[in-house]
């Protein structure tokens, strides 16, 4: 629980703010402050801080606003570029993973299809038309070239998309 402040603090604060404290202030107020712990602490703290501020005011040398503005813009640009590069890196990683996964799956499917095809060829009578269709089955080279194209082109596409934003 907080005890109430001394009732004369507002009066003292007014005297401090108007610069009347201590010499030009009411004699009775001075007598009170000499006796009251709280008001004495308020007077000493407020005058010390206010005079400290006056004393160090001349040391305040913040950089010029133009320089601060320029640095902020540079930093904004840099952070925007870094954020874009991060997006590209993340997207690229995702594409590489998906493509490698798809490539693996395709290899497995191709191998199974090949095995099935051989089994069918061995066990079933082969019509002449079927032999002509055999060259349409995807070759391993086609699959690898397609996957490599995706891996190379994907980051470029992502970069262009992000740059446009």
């Amino acid at each position: 629980m907080n005890a109430p402040d001394c009732q004369r603090q507002d009066e003292l604060l007014d005297a401090l703010a108007s610069g009347q404290w201590p010499d030009a202030s009411d004699r009775e107020l001075r007598a009170h402050v000499a006796e009251c712990t709280e008001c004495a602490a308020l007077a000493v703290v407020a005058t010390s801080i206010a005079s400290d501020r006056r004393d160090i005011e001349h040391l305040a040398s913040p950089p010029p606003s133009g320089a601060v503005w320029w640095r902020m813009q540079m930093r904004m640009d840099r952070e925007a570029r870094e954020a874009a590069a991060k997006t590209v890196r993340r997207t690229h990683s995702a594409i590489v993973l998906v493509t490698l996964g798809a490539l693996g799956a395709l290899l497995v499917i191709t191998r199974l299809a090949g095995t099935a095809w051989s089994w069918l060829a061995d066990t079933m009578p082969r019509p002449a038309e079927l032999a002509t269709l055999q060259h349409l089955a995807p070759s391993m080279t086609t699959v690898v070239v397609a996957a490599a194209s995706v891996l190379v082109l994907a980051p470029i596409v992502v970069w262009l998309a992000v740059a446009e934003e």
Partner: peptide, 28 residues
């Protein structure tokens, strides 16, 4: 704020070596 300021003032006044003698007039 009022209570926190009062405690901070009392502490700073002590540190500045200007803590007044406690008297019967103290309101706490």
């Amino acid at each position: 704020v009022k209570g926190l300021l009062r405690r901070a003032r009392t502490k700073l006044a002590e540190l500045l070596g200007n803590a007044p003698q406690r008297t019967g007039k103290e309101t706490r």
